[in-house]
Structure formats: structure tokens, C-alpha cells
Design a protein around this nucleic acid. Structure first.
Lengths: 221, 221
DNA sequence: CGTGGTGTTGAATGACCTCAAGACAAGTGG
DNA sequence: CCACTTGTCTTGAGGTCATTCAACACCACG
């Protein structure tokens, strides 16, 4: 479709570094990618864990220098999309434009929710929210019907995502194990008690509209 | 232009409550509005302080139920825009669509930055970042050339914005006063040492592109 | 002149961090 | 096959930043 031929990259590969001029966005075909922001003091905040099907790098479309660094958390395959090509599509199809617009709004809502979690909930609620979020997104991709999945993240990465230290993430996981909330061996996570996990996560269940519900009766491309 | 006639609302008025079906977005003509998310436990996170010129409520365009509550922080005047009317414009003018798209991405970047601040920086850095952010936005509106401005927020609202308690916000302000960073009388803020404030804020200086830099040579409406 | 919202300050508590050490697993080169 | 390394996980002890609880001051407002 609109992207360049797929490319494979190993774990730890950097798709694009913060500060570079953004000339592409990226389609993630397989694997996990982390989008992170670096603070002057060297602290890192991972603003998004990307799963297959996601579009990466779009926040920087409004910037002269990319805001986030995109790093492969697992081996990945991606397809780059030049902004120029993207722009043509945007101009020719209002429906596509609307879909993109709504997609960004969804990301924005997700950020609002996580900001609320990081700003206002204790560590265990944040970890619970992360697990539920990942499970839900994987389920939408057709993975695993049971409440288990692979979480190819180090505890440090999880900490950088949730505003915690790796050490504290570890303690939270242990506590969750001891109280029968989850089990984990290697990177395999099993949600033993999703209901209780949900109740302590302070997570909203958001209902998305069908794309462009407010955009009726227009010509498509 | 595209909105309904302006309406005036008093302080504390709720433009739209979280959970309602979003049928409008709002143009803020004067005054301050806070967009907040409520957590199940009753905690509040203010995700954005809106200043005149801002479009409010757009994140909920992708949702069946509004994600955020819009509350007047000062007396305000607003203009409502029905989503339907909005959609027509969106369909007829790709340039408008692109501008909207980029505007959302800017909000997204701002959320990423604040998430990083809340997740990874101490209280004083968050307050410093807020002050600099507000000052910069007011300056863009043509207000105050000197480093002073009105901040019509309670310390509780500031806390809800930064993931702190009102008490701690107060202590941070006092400390900033004692160390010669800022002064405040009533709601008037004076930045005594913007440079030092900036250095401790961990705030990125983002360079925005001109609207639709990647979208060249298309027909406008 | 009360009254409610907000600001201010202290004392005690707590959630999370820092520092440090060790365990464990997966590679890598000998 | 075995050191050896490296990255990650795990656990403890102690410290810190921010919170909670509580009391009081200060306006603005009726």
C-alpha cells in the first residue's frame, strides 16, 4: 500500500532518534517498539509501547525535530512512509484524513488516561493498568483468548513507562504474585484475577466511535 | 465563522461533563478553562489548562462518551461548534483537515512532555515548567512582555494538574519565593529568574513546523 | 460580622527511591 | 564443555520526597 518495502530490524535498533528531522512515519508490521522521551537529566519516559499495526512517529509531524526516540524492543519489521506520500493521500481522501485525525485523538486520550494514572494512582494500580491495557490490545490483534500473553519488556522499561524505578516494579510484581493477581515465568504473564486487577487499576473503559461518525455524506477518494 | 454565537459563563460553570455524548466542540474566546479527568477513587487529573484561542473537547471526538470535563476556571466566553458543521468543513478543505491534524499532534506532544515531567521530575521542576509554559502561551497571545502574568488557579487546581497535593504546591511556591525564583501577590506571578527556572524545569524547547509543511500543492476550499 | 473557600504551616506517616549486593540466565570465546 | 561476561532480576537497609492530618490565618462575599 502506501509504505516502502518492509524492513527487519534487531532488538535495540533505533528507528529514529529524538532531535532528528522527521521525514517519515513508520508502520509497525511485527514486534514491539517503544517511543521514549529523554529528559535533560538523563531520565527517560517511555510514552508508548507500540504493537503491530500501529503507526509510529506521527506526533513529530508537527515538529521540526522529532520529539521521541523509536526503539525496537523486540526484533521488528517495519515499513517507512515518506511524509510527502502521506500528504498526497491526505489531500485526496477526506475520509482518510478523518480516520487519521481520530486515530491521533485516540492516542491523545490514551495519554490523558496514563497521565492521570501516573499523577494520581499508586504503583500497583499503574502496573495493573499496563497489564490490562496490553492484554486488551493483544486480544484485539487476535492473540490469546485466555488471560495470558508475552510481555517482552524489562522491568526497567516498564518503570520508564509508568514513572517508577525498576526495583519498585519488581516489588510490585512480587506483591501481585503473592496476592494471587498474576503469575509470570520468564516473560509470560498470566492474569489470574482480571476482575480484581481491573478494580484496582483505576482504568476507564473507553468506548470508541466508529471512524468518522460525525462525518457523513461526503465524497471519498 | 463556524461556531454558534458566543456565550458567557461564570466561574465554575461546567461546559460539558465527562461521560456525556460529545456533540460539540468549543472555541474558547476569553478566560481560562480546565479539562479534567476523574478517577474512580475520586482523584482528579487536570489534563490541560486552556487559554483563549484554544479548541476544547476535541479528544472526545473519537469517543461515544466524553473523556474529560470542561470547567470554567474564570468567567469565560465560548462558542460551540456542532460536530456536524465541523465535519463538512473537514470534508471540503484538506488544508483545514491538515491544520486540525497537526493541532492535535501538538497537543499530543504537550501531553507526552507533561507525562515525562510528572513521571520523572520532582515537584519544583513541574511547577517551574508550568509557570514557563503559561508565560510562553500568554506571550504568544500578545499579553505581557515582562516576565509577569496572572495565574487564576487555586493551588489545588495546580496540584491536580501536576500530580501533587495543594499543600505541597504551596511549599514549592514558598521555596521558590525564598530562593528568589518568583514572587507572587494574590494571583500575580513574577518570574524573577527565568533562566534558572528554565534550567531546573527539564522542559524541552519544541520548534513547531509551519502548518502542513509536508502537504504541498493541493487545492484548498 | 459570620462563613466558606483558599492559603499557610507543622508534625508524623508513608510510598517510593537510592544504594548495594547477590542470584540467575543467556551468550561468547577459549 | 567451561570460564567469563553481560544484562536482568531479586532482595535488604536506609533515606527522601511528598502525603496526610490538623490547625489556623486570610480574604472575599453575603
Amino acid at each position: 500500500m502506501l509504505g516502502e518495502p518492509p524492513a527487519s530490524l534487531p532488538r535495540h535498533a533505533v528507528l529514529r532518534r529524538e532531535g532528528e528531522a522527521p521525514r517519515h512515519i513508520y508502520l509497525l508490521l511485527s514486534g514491539w517498539v517503544g517511543a521514549s522521551v529523554l529528559l535533560p537529566g538523563g531520565e527517560r519516559q517511555i510514552v508508548k509501547f507500540h504493537l503491530p499495526g500501529d503507526m509510529l512517529g506521527t506526533p513529530s509531524m508537527c515538529l521540526a525535530q522529532a520529539a521521541d526516540t523509536l526503539t525496537a524492543l523486540t526484533p521488528v519489521t517495519i515499513s517507512r512512509v515518506p511524509l510527502a506520500a502521506f500528504g498526497a493521500l491526505f489531500a485526496s481522501s477526506p475520509r482518510f484524513a478523518a480516520a487519521m485525525f481520530l486515530s491521533v485523538q485516540r492516542e491523545r486520550v490514551a495519554l490523558m488516561d496514563r497521565l492521570a494514572a501516573v499523577g494520581r494512582t499508586p504503583a500497583i494500580a499503574r502496573v495493573a493498568a499496563l497489564l490490562l491495557d496490553v492484554e486488551e490490545r493483544l486480544r484485539a490483534l487476535g492473540r490469546a483468548g485466555d488471560d495470558s500473553f508475552d510481555l517482552p519488556l524489562t522491568q526497567e522499561q516498564i518503570g520508564d513507562h509508568l514513572g517508577l524505578t525498576a526495583v519498585h516494579v519488581n516489588r510490585v510484581f512480587r506483591q501481585m504474585g503473592e496476592t494471587g493477581l498474576v503469575t509470570r515465568e520468564r516473560q509470560r504473564i498470566v492474569l489470574l484475577d482480571p476482575a480484581r486487577l481491573r478494580s484496582m487499576s483505576a482504568r476507564q473503559q473507553r468506548v470508541m466511535t466508529k471512524d468518522a461518525g460525525w462525518m457523513l455524506g461526503d465524497a471519498d477518494a
